[in-house]
Simulated assay, not measured.
Amino acid sequence: MRTTATAALFVALPALSVLEPSVAHAQAPTAASAPSPADVAEAKKKFESGANLFKAGKYAEAIEDFRTSYGKVQSPNSHLYIARSLREMGKLAEAYVEFDKVAAEAQTAGEKYAQTGETAKLERDELNPKIALVSVDVTTPESGARLTIGGIEVPQDRWGKPFPATPGSVEIRLESPGKPAATQSITPAAGESRTVQLGFASAGDGSGDGSGDGSGDGGSDAGKGMSGMRIGAFAAGGLGVAGFVTFAVFGSMSNATYDDLQAACGGPCPADRQGDVDKGKMQQTVANVGLIVGAVGVAAGATLFVLSLKKDKKPEAARTELVVGPAHLGLRGTF
């Protein structure tokens, strides 16, 4: 085959030659700035060296030569063998990405690389049962943000589209200067497709996990209520519940002590049972305190909760009160 000063490298490689790469010469993709004869010669040398190493099963060494060759002359053929080397090294997610790039590159490199592009697509698709495909919908896209899936950076034009990941534990990470990173971990199986949402935490939501999309029902006012009045409502309600539990437990204990003394003494108890009498009184006192704390806590919690829902109304519009009856205890409120 005749070469000129600007003639370049590599014929389109045989479609499925995985273990016996071709090293035949051809022209490199045409470009505005053609590679120099020295670059062409170095690219050819490194491609042939990489092909021999690939055939010998020395994939880690082969890929370095293929990358050097591709750096000199950006031929889809050397790029194809970069992807194949990654695959043989067990880096299936990275190999999938490179096969995808080869297919796209071959489309614009000229008709002579059409077979290379088709081969790249075929070998990419053969990886589907061995990898997971993850689509990440970034809910808070920002200029300069960086998304990675399993440590592999996802170009912004691939956000929201299936992207390869190694099956098993996969960390999805969204970073942007000056913001806490948003992360999410998933465990997809081989051949599985997953779609997740990830975004930076909005100011004041206190979530800290970065997984929210900032589209809550209450808007910014609701976020402020949750961080103050609503939290106070939950805290007071929790204290009230604890008070009622104390009332129930110690009230039951007091009743049991009273029943025991009544059965043993049948009336006023002698001095040697004074300790049990004092214990019963203490249990009744604790029960009474628990009842008061429970009533006040639940009433306060209910009031605060209602106010947090009705922030656009005057505070006087909401009112709760404790209702005690012969056989019941409860709350009554007007809003």
Rank of each mutant, 00 (worst) to 15 (best):
G237Q: 04
G237T: 08
G238I: 01
L239N: 03
L239T: 10
G240N: 08
V241E: 09
A242Y: 02
A242R: 04
G243R: 07
F244H: 06
F244S: 04
V245P: 01
V245E: 05
T246D: 05
F247A: 13
A248C: 01
A248K: 02
F250Q: 11
S252W: 05
S252E: 07
N255S: 14
N255M: 07
N255V: 01
T257V: 07
T257R: 09
T257P: 00
Y258F: 10
D259A: 15
D260F: 05
Q262H: 06
Q262I: 00
A263T: 13
A263L: 08
A263P: 05
A264K: 15
A264F: 04
A264P: 10
C265P: 10
G267V: 08
G267N: 11
G267R: 09
G267Y: 07
P268G: 03
P270C: 05
D272L: 12
D272S: 15
R273A: 15
Q274V: 13
Q274I: 13
Q274L: 15
Q274Y: 04
G275E: 14
G275H: 09
D276H: 10
D276K: 12
V277C: 12
V277W: 05
D278I: 11
D278N: 14
G280N: 13
G280C: 13
G280R: 12
G280I: 11
G280W: 05
G280Y: 06
G280H: 08
G280V: 11
K281I: 14
K281L: 08
K281Y: 03
K281C: 00
Q283V: 08
Q283L: 15
Q284C: 00
T285P: 01
V286K: 03
A287H: 02
A287N: 02
A287T: 03
A287M: 04
A287W: 01
N288E: 13
N288G: 13
V289I: 12
G290V: 06
G290I: 02
G290D: 05
L291A: 13
L291G: 07
I292K: 11
G294M: 09
G294F: 04
A295Q: 11
A295H: 00
A299W: 03
A299N: 12
G301L: 07
G301R: 06
A302H: 07
T303L: 06
L304V: 10
F305G: 10
V306P: 03
